[in-house]
């Protein structure tokens, strides 16, 4: 990925925020019809819709910043895998409910730090979207952290599965709070935040909940990165194939 020009920093930065939300929403919606109970399924679908709603606003803003060269839909449905800059965490698949909640818990904890920080962004549009997203994130976190605690402090089996999910996902969490050149430039412009500044707060938030859940914060080890520059795990391509199928098969189709 080539470094964006000064004018390109903001749209590229907003794009990565949106990609995290879109891909996470797609992953969550895979759980629809597979929830343990109708009510829990609805809760997960609501989170997915919240994420999708914010993603849509951000894609529309990117489109506007780019001068309308592509629409929000084209950005979402017609980019290739290497053009997506979402973090690796959100594209990780789930085998059971603990994986869904573990992934969501790490992401929600991140969003609970990120969005409030972005509320004071120098960019008015981004600040307004962040204010809305911050409220949603607080509820999402209450929901996912509640499940992490319930499963962690539940039965031997539920604690084992919850811990296994956290351990598996842990190597994708470092990327959330790792700053790259674009983050630093967006922060320097006053429109973005440097994620490494939020690292300690994220860790405290996660640690506090895992403590309550009687789970262990996974040991530090290799942290995978690459999502921000379009180098993804093998899972994203499969996700995009499903998500983008309709637009690829029937170009320009509308509902």
């Amino acid at each position: 990925m080539t470094a964006p020009t000064a004018a390109g920093v903001l749209p590229t930065y907003v794009l990565r925020l949106a990609d995290d939300l879109l891909i996470n929403a797609q992953r969550l919606s895979e759980f629809i019809t597979r929830g343990p109970e109708l009510e829990e399924e609805l809760a997960i679908a609501n989170t997915a819709l919240d994420n999708l709603g914010v993603a849509q606003q951000l894609y529309e803003y990117v489109s506007e910043l780019e001068g309308g060269a592509r629409t929000a839909d084209e950005i979402a449905f017609l980019r290739a895998e290497r053009e997506f800059t979402n973090c690796l965490l959100v594209e990780q698949p789930h085998a059971d409910f603990a994986d869904v909640m573990g992934r969501q818990f790490f992401l929600d904890a991140w969003h609970c730090e990120l969005w409030p920080a972005l509320e004071s962004s120098g960019d008015a549009t981004l600040a307004a979207v962040a204010a809305k997203a911050a409220k949603e994130a607080r509820y999402h976190f209450r929901h996912s952290a509640g499940w992490v605690i319930r499963l962690g402090d539940g039965t031997v089996e539920s604690a084992k599965r919850m811990q296994r999910a956290l351990n598996t996902l842990w190597k994708f969490t470092g990327e959330l709070t790792t700053a790259d050149e674009l983050d630093r430039r967006a922060a320097a412009q006053g429109s973005g935040v440097d994620p490494s500044d939020l690292q300690a707060a994220w860790q405290d938030r996660v640690g506090e909940m895992l403590d309550e859940a009687q789970l262990t914060v996974p040991a530090d080890r290799y942290q995978a990165t690459g999502g921000r520059s379009g180098r993804h795990t093998e899972h994203l391509g499969h996700l995009l194939a499903e998500m983008q199928f309709m637009q690829r098969a029937y170009p320009g189709m509308e509902w």
Binding site: E37, L38, E39, A43, N46, H143, R150
Partner: peptide
Amino acid sequence: SVHAADAETAVQNARDT
């Protein structure tokens, strides 16, 4: 009505439903 394992999740499920 909603199904839930405990009162706390019942409130959350009611919120989402």
